[in-house]
Design a protein around this nucleic acid. Structure first.
Length: 686
RNA sequence: GGCGAGGUAGCUCAGUUGGUUAGAGCGUCGGAUUCAUAACCCGGAGGUCACGAGUUCAAUUCUCGUCCUCGCUACCA
């Protein structure tokens, strides 16, 4: 992975810009901000020149929709969430050098300038297409602003990009009876001109740069995803949209057009750096334009294509920028077994956590780092959070510090005793200590945060073992000099921890430096065993962590269950009745009771099961899309209702002779409609 | 359907350029201990390394196929 960091003069570390239409949750933290923060704290501790960039992404259609729904302006929406996000990051110890926002004037300038330069260089292609236009509101309509009847499921409130009832993705022209969400009028199709980034032309150098150049140092998930995109063939992508919210297209005759949000958002990293530059008086350009700078994007896996292909494409074409050295994207974090969802309120919100667990930032940081979804999706559970606090942070780290300081208080009035004669065991320990900075650091250099964290804890484990093995509480009765040595070494371990744990546990490290009564030290000062001088006075012992008991965890779990209940209530939306029919329409339908004789999942399909049914009339094959809800082996022998006079139809090359009756709820979950008791096969359902 | 990532102890993960008894942390069980927030320390149990076939003297590691999870993409209803 990453070549030696020593080859670089400075580091530019960006973290994905959170979208300002909701608060931050643990998924964002575990995937992006905690690892990024650990990384930059480590670099700073090593004395590297590093800038850590964050900011809110405030443009795009979803924000305008949210604003309309709430009857406020988009700016009010983003003001609210930007403030909230910024403050919660700060309280959580995410140590941005700058946290900016894309509605800031400096960003509008930067993005417009970026676009203009590319435009003048002829880097875009222009295309005119037909788009829906609302003649009353006098504007073109984003896909989300058009509603109509879904051509698949007849749901009447489908959006232009997706039907929320059946989940199908749509394009606005698919909708039956399209309506503008702005005025309710029928929109008309109208020509509009947009600019496209010709990604297809970048394939050559992208292949060389990523597929050949980063085969070994990018994470497999990132590399694989890029490969997938490139091999599938890249398409030109529109960089502008017809919308009133965003960065105005900086060329003439482009009323009502803005930069597409994905185009302006990554430029936000650059704008933020410029903002930082204005505040600090330092030059921003080397961080983005000097080959001696190492640019690293921390993101979630949903952002890979933008940061590995599109944004680099923009940077390269613009011509004066460097490309990212690495994009250590993480996978997703689940919560108690379910996908985290902002709209379904299935999340642990950072601002709530900070209120409910005051002073426990590091506990969450630790849990999220230990469970970071580095190689695959991972699950956060409150029980695990509790275990990590009680059995690791408290039992191993906190306990070592506490017992060491308490012993020192007891025997030496809290003064660091002088080291006396060194035993072979002591020597071995001192040698071990030396290895930790490099051991932890090299893991961090390679973005292996979980392992780095575990190595850090190993130092605390080493300290505990040393204490237990050398039993100063016994030795004190016979050999005080020996105890001096033991505690001196134990205290040096504590001092090392104050340095080496700082990137992971900044609040704890700070408390620890207070307890040890020292100044924060740099990474290079770790590994040594003379950090604390003999005679140095410690402060009084205090706990670094407190036990979290079951009650606290139960409260959190029931809070989640409450959210789940509310979701279910909300999602139990029922479709309105269809038009009336006459009896004859119904009488033509022939439904029978049948029994499933065989069931076999059809390979390579998501939903299909091939069933053999005894209908009383005959035995026949039916293909049914129920595999997401039933396992083949569980349904054999089950009685079901089957529509027997449906025109046969081939699905996956198998002729399906009928249809099994299923009830479907608002979530699309299916359940068999079966006779209430065992009934003769072939019985008619009337 | 195509593509990508993953599938290793109860949980979270490491590892194997193919080679004797597959590792760690947490949990669990037992022991020891009392300086320490029932914490620390020692030890045990626990895995046919998703499944099947192939290559090989030897495969968890290579090849092929299958299944499962997640994502991207396409299509079908």
């Amino acid at each position: 992975m990453a070549q030696s960091n020593k080859n670089f003069k400075r580091f530019t570390v960006t973290s994905a810009l959170p979208y300002a239409n909701g608060p931050i949750h643990i998924g964002h933290l575990a995937g992006v901000y905690v690892p990024a923060d650990i990384f930059v704290r480590y670099l700073r501790s090593k004395g590297e020149d590093v800038i850590f960039i964050g900011g809110s992404d405030e443009h795009g259609v979803p924000i305008t929709i949210k604003a309309r729904q709430q009857g406020v302006t988009p700016q009010e929406i983003v003001d609210k969430y930007h403030t909230m996000i910024r403050d919660s990051f700060e309280k959580f110890g995410i140590s941005f050098d700058v946290y900016s926002r894309t509605s800031a004037p400096i960003h509008h300038d930067t993005a417009a300038e970026f676009f203009r330069k590319m435009y003048e260089q002829g880097d875009f292609i222009e295309k005119t297409t037909m788009q829906y236009y609302d003649e009353e509101a006098h504007q073109f309509l984003a896909d989300r602003y058009i509603t109509g009847t879904c051509p698949h499921c007849s749901y009447e409130k489908a959006y232009g990009d997706q039907c929320e009832n059946c989940g199908t993705s749509l394009s606005p022209t698919d909708l039956i009876n399209p309506k503008s969400a702005l005025s309710g009028r029928v929109p008309v199709q109208k020509e509009t001109k947009h600019w496209y980034l010709p990604l297809d032309q970048y394939e050559g150098w992208l292949r060389e740069w990523i597929l050949e150049g980063h085969k070994d140092d990018w994470k497999p998930n990132v590399y694989g995803q890029c490969k997938s995109w490139i091999e599938q063939g890249l398409q030109p992508r529109a960089v502008t949209r017809d919308l009133n919210w965003g960065v105005r297209v900086p060329i003439e005759n482009t009323e009502g057009k803005v930069l597409y949000v994905w185009f302006d958002a990554p430029i936000g990293y650059i704008s933020a750096t410029r903002e930082w530059s204005e505040k600090t008086g330092k030059d921003w350009e080397p961080y983005w334009k000097d080959e001696g700078s190492k640019l690293i994007h921390f993101i979630g896996k949903d952002n890979i294509v933008f940061h590995c292909i599109i944004f680099p494409g923009m940077l390269k074409k613009e011509g004066t920028y460097i490309l990212p050295d690495n994009v250590p994207a993480n996978e997703f974090l689940n919560l108690e077994g379910d996908k985290i969802s902002t709209s379904r309120n299935w999340a642990v919100w950072l601002h709530e956590y900070l209120e409910e667990f005051p002073g426990k930032q590091d506990v969450l940081r630790y849990t999220l780092c230990a469970n970071a979804p580095e190689t695959k999706d991972n699950d956060f559970t409150w029980k695990d959070f509790q275990a990590k606090n009680n059995n690791e942070l408290l039992a191993i780290y906190g306990n070592l510090i506490n017992r060491t300081i308490v012993l020192t208080e007891k025997y030496f009035n809290g003064k660091v005793p002088e080291r006396q004669k060194i035993s072979e065991d002591d020597k071995a320990i001192l040698e071990e200590i030396k290895k930790f900075p490099e051991r932890i650091g090299s893991k961090l250099d390679h973005y292996r945060f979980r392992e780095a964290l575990s190595e850090m804890m190993n130092l605390a484990r080493l300290g505990n073992k040393y204490l237990t093995d050398s039993e100063p509480w016994k030795v004190i009765k016979t050999d005080e000099d020996r105890v001096k040595t033991i505690l001196n070494i134990s205290l040096q371990i504590c001092a090392n921890l104050s340095i080496l744990s700082e990137p992971f546990l900044p609040f704890t490290a700070e408390k620890l430096t207070y307890l040890l009564n020292i100044k924060p030290l740099r990474w290079d000062e770790a590994g040594h065993s003379d950090i604390l001088e003999s005679g140095h006075q410690l402060n009084k012992a205090e706990y670094l962590f407190e036990r979290i008991d079951d009650k606290v965890i139960e409260t959190q779990v029931s809070k989640l269950l409450e959210a789940k209940k509310q979701n279910e209530a909300q999602e139990s939306g029922v479709n309105p009745a269809k038009e009336n029919i006459v009896y004859d329409d119904f009488a033509r339908i022939d439904i029978r009771v049948g029994t499933i004789l065989e069931a076999e999942k059809i390979a390579k399909t998501k939903k299909l099961i091939k069933l053999k049914i005894d209908t009383g009339i005959d035995q026949r094959t039916v293909v049914s899309g129920i595999a997401e809800y039933y396992k083949s082996k569980d349904i054999i022998g089950k009685q079901v209702c089957i529509l027997v006079n449906l025109e046969p139809r081939k699905l996956r090359g198998i002729e399906s002779q009928g249809m099994i009756l299923m009830a479907e709820d608002a979530n699309g979950k299916l359940v068999f409609v079966s006779p209430a008791e065992k009934f003769m096969n072939g019985s008619e359902v009337k």
